[in-house]
Every structure is written in structure tokens, then in C-alpha cells.
Computed example of a mutant assay.
Amino acid sequence: MTDPRPAAPTVLVVMGVSGSGKSTVAALLAERLGWTFADGDDFHTADSIARMRGGHPLDDAARQPWLERIRTWIDGRLAAGENAVIACSALKRAYRRTLIDGTARVRLVFLEGSRDIIQSRVRARHGHFMPATLLDSQFAALEPPGPDEAPITVGIEESPDAIVAAVAAQLDIPADDVCG
């Protein structure tokens, strides 16, 4: 079997609004590729989580230290020669610049879906700190990645397995070369 790792380490940032399936897809993708996984939610401070749980969206100033912690994690994976996948909303171009700027080995995977589908998912999930009331703020902040950001854009209508297969196909990693 061919090694599915690219010649140089790569980090995939699986992005989209809350409820688009970032954590599920990123974890499954990392598992299938045999890459390291992290969830951007784990990089939030307790204060930020409490703020969101209370129905208050984070502003840019509150998000910046969070994005910098994620960038440090990305840089650490690349420096260690590890391929990795991280779930992170990365809603605005400025946020993505913090995560990626100057790092050609980071690729965006944009999970794109309709408000109706995402709203139904957010309402159905339990135990997550992000309430459905913040979905409007997520869509208001969303700046879909442009062609200059070379995103892998995948619709969320299919199953997580189908989404992962679509991402892997765009990475030019043969299905037989992924783990699992």
C-alpha cells in the first residue's frame, strides 16, 4: 500500500458555520487518513465558552487569541512533520489569514450548506455550548473562501462518509490508500 501522506506535511482546516459538521467530518477524515486530529472548540477559554453558551457571539478581539492558539498548534504539527486535520469555524478571511498566512501547507475544507439544513442540525444536537440562537451571527460573519484561498468546498447534504470521500478525492489520495 502506498503511504497516503503527502511529501511535505499538510494540515487541513475543516471550516464552516456551527452545525455544518466540522468536528464530525474532521475527526472522520483524520481517522481515515491516519492523521492527527484536533477540534478548535478545545482551544476556547472557559470564559469564551460561557459567553457563547449565554447566547453572546464572540467578537473579533475575543476570537484573536483563540485563533493564535490554533495557529500555534498548526505550526507545531508542521514543525514535527505531522499531517493533521483541525475543525475550526474560520468564518472570516481575516481569521483564515491568522491560521494560514505564509503557510502553503495548510488547506481549507469548506463545509457548505443551507441555513435550513444547518438550523435543523443545531436544534437537534444536545450538549454543545453553541446555542441555535447564535446561528444568525455565524451566517452574518461567514465570508466563504474565495478561489484565491484554493478551498476544497463540499456540500453537507451527504453522509459524513460521503463528505470524507469527496474531500479525499480532491486531495488526490486514492480511496485504497486511506486507513480504515
Rank of each mutant, 00 (worst) to 15 (best):
P160Y: 12
Q64P: 00
R125I: 11
L91E: 07
G127M: 08
Q119G: 13
K92F: 04
R105E: 14
P131A: 09
S20C: 14
I152Y: 03
V154A: 03
D161E: 15
V167C: 08
T153G: 02
D47R: 12
A80N: 10
I86Q: 03
M130K: 02
G76S: 05
A50K: 06
P144K: 09
V14S: 03
I100R: 15
A168W: 11
V85D: 06
L29K: 00
L28D: 06
R77Q: 15
A46V: 11
V122H: 06
D41N: 05
L99T: 12
R32C: 00
A162V: 14
P4S: 06
P144F: 07
L135C: 09
T10W: 00
A175C: 02
A124R: 12
T153N: 04
P9L: 00
I163K: 05
E143H: 09
S18H: 07
M52G: 10
I156W: 04
D136V: 11
H128V: 06
M15T: 12
P151Q: 02
R32E: 02
P6H: 10
P6M: 02
H44S: 04
A87T: 07
A8G: 06
R51W: 00
L111V: 09
V154Q: 01
V25I: 13
A141R: 05
G21W: 03
D42W: 01
S23E: 01
G180T: 14
F139V: 04
V164S: 04
L142D: 03
K22Y: 04
C179D: 10
P6S: 08
M130V: 13
R96M: 06
T103G: 13
I86K: 03
R107S: 13
M130A: 09
D176W: 10
A169W: 07
E149P: 10
G21D: 00
G54T: 01
A90S: 15
L58M: 07
S159A: 14
D101K: 14
G146Y: 01
G180A: 14
R51C: 13
D59I: 09
V164W: 02
T36I: 12
L171D: 11
Q64I: 02
N83V: 07
E68V: 14
L135Y: 04
A175F: 09
M130R: 05
A168F: 08
I156S: 01
T98Q: 13
